[in-house]
Design a protein around this nucleic acid. Structure first.
Length: 424
RNA sequence: GGAGAGAUGGCUGAGCGGUUGAAAGCGACGGUCUUGAAAACCGUUGAGGGCGCAAGUCCUCCGUGAGUUCGAAUCUCACUCUCUCCA
């Protein structure tokens, strides 16, 4: 959610900035509703004031034993009027809140212009795509041939976009999460955290999945009005909801490992083969709570932490600065890490690192107390995948395959795999 | 699943329907004292919002949502959560 000031005092500017990401703000409507709001709110508050004053007088008069019937009689009109105006105001505020809840974050000045993927800018890259002297296979072909990756049984058990992993591949996925958690906790100073995988609607609203993107979640039916998390960003970020964090506790850096569940609505036909786009996948997520003046430095740092995993795994990747139109709803600035996939002959997203500034914090009243001024101020929230484990598995399989369809594991994983260097 | 008890500020904990945004204590912060610290004493100390250039002023909030009333932390109803006991 944007600062109400953006809509009340800087409406035109706000609209033009939002246009950069292809969002059209209804300036005329908002101007009109805000003007009505202002008038109505003053009116309601004046009536409330009158009610409070007169009621207080009644109390005093009564304690003195004076006759109060005439005063009370005169108050009946005020009550009814207040009720009507209040209802009118509430309706208006709801309407405004709903409009504002659907407005995306303002892109930071440094964000590249553009509306589509095509306009994203490469910031840097690491490693070079390996040349194969044979035609590299895709991970699904490799996994099925190894007898360790099974989409048919997954479809039987559940449906499309699920996978069954067995043996070494199941183990590889497991140790990858441990490897990532180890790096982030031991080398990057993140605190490991375990959180619920089902969340309520308020939590989804806080991080920006609601109200606009309800169809992207798996919402469970029955007595519990919960949703499966699309990312651990949701439960972890919501730890700060309705909190006032003492300044000295910042920054707070969490790393969480959770499964993620996404409906992938509107992606029919996209990446149907293999593990690239699944309804369920594992992810190690980095989440940070920062003071506003530090958030952009923290964003660079967090991105580099995610990159570190790819570097240690010696996987070629590039860092893309997303253009305004390609960023997620809540982000002010976002880098995507894209890993090289030989079978597709291109880079594919494996991590998304975003600074949300105060956008999420305002939705959930996440604040810190400035020790100098004693005032509360909204924190900045950030997160990034560090990394998507399923896609990391895919990248390892494809980049480290040999002509026989064996997978030669990167050295950093040998110990984790109990000395095993090759999956065959 | 059934039966009870509860939910008040950073924490503990009062609060006959009427100058209660809320006693008291603790904590925190500022000050006095002290070479310094502690103790003692004095003072300050919730959040969100409207209007206004500002000084300021007003409104809302005692788990959530409705209701009764001139007036609700206090009464009524529903819900949520926590604790205890039983299955």
């Amino acid at each position: 959610m944007l600062d109400p000031k953006c809509f009340r005092q800087e409406l035109e500017v706000t609209a033009s900035i939002l246009q950069k990401r292809g969002f059209k703000l209804d300036v005329t409507l908002i101007k009109d509703l805000e003007e009505k709001r202002r008038v109505l709110q003053v009116e309601v508050q004046n009536l409330q004031n009158e009610r409070n004053q007169r009621s207080k007088e009644v109390g005093i008069a009564k304690s003195k034993g004076e006759d109060i019937s005439s005063v009370i009689a005169s108050m009946h009109g005020v009550g009814a009027k207040l009720e009507a105006k209040q209802a009118e105001l509430d309706e208006l505020l709801d309407k405004l809140h709903d409009i504002y809840s659907r407005v995306p974050n303002l892109p930071h000045d440094a964000v590249p212009k553009g509306l589509t993927e095509e306009d994203n800018l490469e910031v840097r890259h690491f490693g070079k795509p390996k040349k194969f002297d044979f035609t590299p296979k895709d991970h699904a072909t490799l996994g099925i041939a190894l007898g360790m990756m099974d989409f048919e049984n997954a479809a039987k058990i559940t449906g499309a976009r699920f996978v069954v992993l067995t043996d070494k591949l199941a183990k590889l996925q497991r140790i990858l999460t441990k490897f990532m958690l180890d790096v982030h906790t031991k080398e990057h100073g993140y605190k490991e955290i375990y959180v619920p995988h089902l969340v309520n609607a308020t939590s989804l609203f806080s991080t920006g999945q609601l109200p606009k993107f309800s169809a992207d979640q798996f919402n469970i039916e029955g007595d519990f009005n919960y949703s499966l998390i699309p990312t651990s960003e949701v439960p972890v970020t919501n730890l700060a909801r309705d909190e006032i964090i003492p300044e000295e506790k910042l920054p707070i850096k969490y790393v969480a490992y959770t499964p993620c569940y996404r409906s992938e609505a509107g992606t029919y036909g996209k990446d149907m083969q293999g593990m690239i786009r699944q309804h369920q996948f594992e992810k190690v997520e980095l989440v940070r709570f920062e003071k506003p003046e530090n958030s952009y430095q923290a964003h660079e740092e967090l991105t580099s932490h995610a990159e570190k995993i790819l570097q240690k795994l010696e996987l070629p990747y590039r860092v893309m600065a997303l253009c305004a139109g390609d960023m997620g709803f809540s982000a002010a600035k976002c880098y995507d890490l894209e890993v090289w996939l030989p079978s597709q002959d291109k880079y594919r997203e494996i991590s998304s690192c975003s600074n949300f500034e105060s956008f999420q914090a305002r939705r959930m009243q996440a604040r810190y107390r400035d020790t100098k001024t004693g005032k509360t101020e909204l924190i900045h929230t950030l997160n990034g995948s560090g990394l998507a484990v399923g896609r990391t598995l895919v990248a390892i399989m494809e980049n480290y395959q040999d002509q026989n369809g064996y997978i030669h594991l990167p050295e950093v994983l040998w110990d984790y795999m109990d000395g095993e260097k090759v999956i065959k």
